[in-house]
Simulated assay, not measured.
Amino acid sequence: MKTNKNPDEFLRERITELRIKKGVSESQMSYDLGHSRSYINNITSGKSLPSMIEFFYICDYFEITPFEFYNIENKNPSLIHVICQKLEKLEEKDLLLILELINRMQHM
C-alpha cells in the first residue's frame, strides 16, 4: 500500500481515478457534493484540499471507506466494497464455496 507520491498528489489522483470509474465529470461530482462546479477541479488541480469532513463525504460519494480510498492495491474499491457487504450476509458453507471458486480462478 505504500506509494512514493506525496499525500496531496495521491489524493488528487485517486479522486480523479475513482471519479472516472464512476463515470461522472468534475462539475457533476461537485454539484452532487453540494458545491460549485469548480470544487473538484480545484482539488484535482492542486489549488485546494478538502477538509476532513469533505473527505468523508467524498468517500461516501464513491461508496467506500477511507481505508479503501487509500488502498492503492485495490483498483475497484466501490465494487469490492459492495461484494464484501454481500459476503457478510452469507452462511459459512456459501462463503467456503466462493473461496473455492476464487482459488480455482486464481490458478487459471
Rank of each mutant, 00 (worst) to 15 (best):
S38M: 08
K22I: 02
K21S: 14
R12K: 12
P77F: 00
T44E: 04
C84F: 03
N103I: 03
I80G: 04
P50K: 00
K5C: 05
Y39T: 04
E13S: 05
M108C: 11
S25C: 12
K5P: 02
D32A: 13
E91Y: 09
K75I: 13
P66Q: 07
I20W: 08
N4I: 14
K47C: 02
E26M: 12
K86Y: 05
F55I: 00
M105L: 15
K22M: 09
E100I: 12
E13A: 09
K5M: 13
I40T: 06
I98L: 15
L90A: 09
T3F: 09
K93Q: 11
Y61L: 11
Q106G: 01
L49F: 06
T65Y: 04
N41W: 07
I83V: 11
L11P: 01
M29P: 02
K86P: 00
T3R: 01
N103V: 00
S30A: 13
K75E: 12
I43G: 04
H81S: 15
M29H: 04
L33V: 07
N6M: 05
L101P: 01
C84W: 03
N71D: 15
Q106P: 05
E91D: 12
K75M: 09
N6G: 05
N41C: 05
T16G: 09
I64C: 10
M52D: 08
P50H: 02
L87M: 15
F10T: 03
C84Q: 11
I83S: 11
N6H: 08
C84L: 12
K5G: 01
K89D: 13
E9C: 00
I72P: 01
P77C: 05
H107Q: 14
M108N: 07
K93P: 07
F55S: 01
E17T: 13
G23H: 09
G23D: 10
N103S: 14
T44H: 08
P50E: 02
I15R: 05
K86M: 06
D8C: 01
K2F: 10
N42G: 08
G34H: 08
K5Q: 15
S48A: 10
T65C: 01
C84A: 11
G46I: 01
D94Y: 15
I20N: 14
N103W: 06
N6P: 06
L79Y: 09
N71K: 09
L101H: 13
G46S: 08
Y31V: 11
I98R: 01
K86I: 02
K93C: 09
I53M: 07
H107Y: 02
M1P: 07
I15A: 10
E92F: 08
I98M: 04
L95N: 09
G34D: 05
E88S: 15
E92A: 03
K21D: 13
C84R: 10
E13M: 04
R104G: 00
E91Q: 10
Y31L: 13
C59L: 07
S25V: 10
N76K: 10
I40M: 10
I64A: 11
K47D: 06
K2W: 00
S51Y: 07
L99A: 14
K75Q: 05
L33Y: 03
